[in-house]
Amino acid sequence: METALAGLVAAFFATSIYLLLSRHLIRVLIGVAILGNAVNLLLFTSGRLTREVPAFIGLDEMVPAPGVANALPQALILTAIVISFSFFAFLLVLGYRAYQELGTDDTNGMRIAEPRSEPPPPMGY
């Protein structure tokens, strides 16, 4: 089953990178959102898959039954999901503000930090 998910992970990465390479701000943002999912799935799959047996300990047991899902990647991903969401929101607001200020959603048009015709550097001391 890992093989199928590896293929899916490849598809997630390919999609997100294709969108990231766009000059369109909103596509880049969507690409970032998908990238988060791609990485989470990558982590999840590399911790091996277990069908439908969550990592819980029975009421009367002290350790989980053998064959439960791997809890460690889950713990890592859980926080990652929330963090990638908050970053996605931040990027969204940032992109939105940039669009408002600069009047363009084309990353090529956003040249405040690196203007097209930069003055030559000062030659004095």
Binding site: V82, F85, S86, A89, V93, Y96, Q100
Partner: peptide, 19 residues
């Protein structure tokens, strides 16, 4: 933290009228 921060983000975007 999660509730406060995410609520703040959501409300911020909801009330932000832009222009």
């Amino acid at each position: 933290v999660v509730m406060g921060a995410i609520t703040s983000i959501a409300l911020c975007l909801e009330e932000y009228d832009g222009d």
